[in-house]
């Protein structure tokens, strides 16, 4: 507080006023209504709404498929980041830019494209169908869509850290007789871990709440391929606001926990970098 008083720069009151007002009106007050609404439900009603079998099945699918997709993205994201940073090949910069496509492409477009692609007559779906794998309208399809959505996160968190790693430590490991794989496991992977976990958590958090890219490919069968955000949507359309609110509260609490975890991870990463 004291250093602000000494600052010669103007506009603290104005910029802070705009920030707090806009943040409160657009984000904080609206979000808080969810908690007020659910508080007025009463504990018992809330518990029944938030844990009915159909709702539980939707959590299982949303969290399960998101977890699978985030694991796939952690592995492939590390691979892609490694290849982009360490190897040189024609078109590398173009491909580097293309990695962000899932951030830029509207989710509805991704949804219809993936559904058509992996549908029974699709370019890829038809081949998978021939060997007995159904993707569209199954939980596997949900995982495919979520893999697409989460693809950039791990690449973009790991890439800068990998770039800044000093080559000297690898040379030291090699000169001490470590194999390339040992060097990777013991020397390179540990400093990448915070970034890798952050990317994993970001992809996971994004996937759990994802709606647009999933609703087309999932088929939306209750108890089977119905994700939690879709169930909220369905309940809203039936004017079952208490039911929708209960699911939303569970998902929000979960999101806040992940957000907290990500902040802790980034804090740990910064401390490691500073050390």
């Amino acid at each position: 507080m004291s250093s602000r008083r000494h600052s010669v720069l103007p506009g603290f009151g104005l910029s802070m006023g705009i920030t707090i007002t806009y943040l409160s009106l657009l984000v904080l007050l609206p979000l808080s209504t969810i908690f007020f609404r659910s508080a007025s439900l009463g504990w018992e009603h809330f518990w029944v709404s938030a844990t009915s079998p159909r709702v539980l099945a939707s959590y299982r699918l949303s969290f399960g498929a998101s977890f699978v997709a985030a694991v796939i993205n952690a592995i492939t994201g590390l691979l892609v980041a490694w290849v982009l940073v360490r190897y040189r090949f024609p078109g590398r910069k173009l491909i580097d830019a293309l990695v962000d496509l899932p951030f830029a492409l509207p989710t509805a477009v991704a949804g219809i494209a993936l559904t058509t692609l992996y549908g029974p007559n699709g370019w890829i779906g038809r081949w998978l169908e021939a060997i007995g794998i159904k993707v569209a309208f199954t939980p596997l399809g949900v995982a495919v869509a979520l893999t697409f959505i989460g693809l950039p996160f791990v690449v973009r968190t790991v890439q800068p850290v990998l770039q800044d790693l000093e080559r000297e430590i690898e040379e030291a490991a090699a000169s001490l007789g470590a194999s390339r794989w040992q060097t990777f496991r013991r020397v390179l992977l540990p400093p990448l871990m915070p970034a890798l976990l952050t990317g994993f958590a970001l992809a996971f958090a994004r996937s759990v709440g994802e709606y647009g890219s999933v609703v087309f490919i999932s088929g939306n069968m209750p108890m089977k391929t119905e994700i939690a955000p879709l169930l909220i949507m369905t309940k809203l359309e039936q004017f079952d606001y208490p039911g929708a609110t209960a699911i939303a509260v569970v998902m929000l609490v979960f999101s806040f926990i992940i957000l907290l975890g990500i902040n802790l991870l980034q804090w740990a990463g910064r401390r490691r970098a500073a050390a």
Partner: peptide, 17 residues
């Protein structure tokens, strides 16, 4: 915070309001 909130919940908030 808005990045951590599902888009469906973001829309729902304004229905509740």
């Amino acid at each position: 915070l808005p990045f951590a909130v599902s888009p469906v919940i973001a829309g729902m908030v304004f229905i509740l309001l």
